[in-house]
Computed example of a mutant assay.
Amino acid sequence: MMSSSDTAFAGSIPELYERYLVPLIFAPYATDLAARARRHQPSDVLEIAAGTGAVTRRLVDDLPPSTRIVSTDLNQAMLDVASRRGTARPVTWQRADAMALPFADASFDLVVCQFGAMFFPDRPKAYAEVRRVLRPGGRFLFNVWDTLDENDFPRVVLEALRQQFAAQPPTFMQRIPHGYADPDVIRRDLIAGGFRHSPEIVSVGAPSYADSAQLVAIAFCQATPMRAEIEALGSEALDTATRVAEDALIEEFGAGPVTGRIRAHVIEVRL
């Protein structure tokens, strides 16, 4: 079950997210999504759950200047970081709930979403909204993380935290980011949202790099909503969790620069 803290990118999280998580795990897939978007030569693009703008920046670089890009997120603090970071040309930043998109029917020929679908409380409803704002023949392009077994860094971090906080282990990473990895479930949700064409689902792996295990530990313990679960365990819990995660990562990957596997599903469906 999803809690309010699971979608709370508040306080220092947005800045830490942009600084640590984007280069660690999001940047490779932003490049991938933008390249896929470019193949369709869209004229009007909507991005939902844009976060701090990793995909937006790639879309600006990869699509013609004439392409209109509207980037939205439910969390204004994330959009504020994105707008401060800026883009090479103007885009529209707008707060919007994927459950009730504030756009007219058939407004876009491409909707893009990077690692946001896992956070939608009602995925078929969100997909129905995407379908509503797409033009006939338009495309919905999004990605979701594969299971923890296929993503080394969060797997090691979560295993370490389960041992450290055995009485009340954090569950966010397994429940939300890596909890929507079954292609059959994704297909059923798209059908329930009104999509009639069969989606193309491909699995894309990539290496993830960091200069140290400490940076990875900070990224997952302090720059995601798992932080709220950890902080609820006590005043010293966040420091303890970050240290324990760092130690586990060093044991698994070494004390210097670290490399781990990451893997996601990329989904494309036509209206």
Rank of each mutant, 00 (worst) to 15 (best):
A35P: 06
A35K: 13
R36P: 12
A37P: 02
A37S: 06
A37D: 01
R38Y: 00
R38K: 13
R38H: 10
R39E: 15
R39G: 07
H40N: 11
H40L: 15
H40C: 13
H40W: 15
H40T: 13
H40Y: 15
Q41I: 10
Q41C: 08
Q41E: 13
Q41F: 11
Q41H: 14
P42A: 09
P42L: 12
P42F: 11
P42E: 08
S43E: 15
S43P: 14
S43C: 13
D44K: 15
D44Y: 11
V45W: 12
V45T: 14
V45L: 09
V45D: 04
L46Q: 03
L46Y: 04
L46S: 01
L46K: 00
L46T: 03
E47I: 10
I48R: 00
I48H: 01
I48S: 02
I48N: 01
A49V: 05
A49S: 13
A49I: 14
A49M: 06
A50F: 11
A50Y: 10
A50P: 07
A50N: 09
A50K: 13
G51A: 08
G51V: 04
G51S: 09
G51Q: 02
G51H: 07
T52W: 13
T52Q: 12
T52A: 12
T52C: 12
G53D: 05
G53K: 00
G53A: 08
A54E: 08
A54K: 02
A54P: 06
A54W: 07
A54F: 03
V55I: 03
V55R: 07
V55P: 05
V55L: 14
V55K: 09
T56I: 01
T56E: 10
T56Q: 03
R57M: 00
R57Y: 04
R58M: 09
R58V: 03
R58I: 03
R58N: 01
L59P: 01
V60T: 04
V60Q: 07
V60M: 04
V60D: 00
D61P: 06
D61I: 02
D61A: 14
D62L: 11
D62Y: 03
D62H: 14
L63T: 02
L63N: 08
L63K: 08
L63Y: 08
L63M: 12
L63S: 05
P64I: 09
P64V: 10
P64S: 05
P64R: 11
P65L: 03
P65E: 15
P65D: 15
S66W: 11
S66T: 15
S66Q: 14
T67R: 01
T67Q: 05
R68V: 07
R68L: 05
I69A: 00
I69Q: 07
I69H: 05
I69D: 08
V70I: 11
V70G: 09
V70F: 00
V70W: 01
V70H: 00
V70R: 02
S71N: 04
S71L: 09
S71Q: 09
S71V: 01
S71W: 09
T72G: 04
T72E: 01
T72Q: 08
T72F: 07
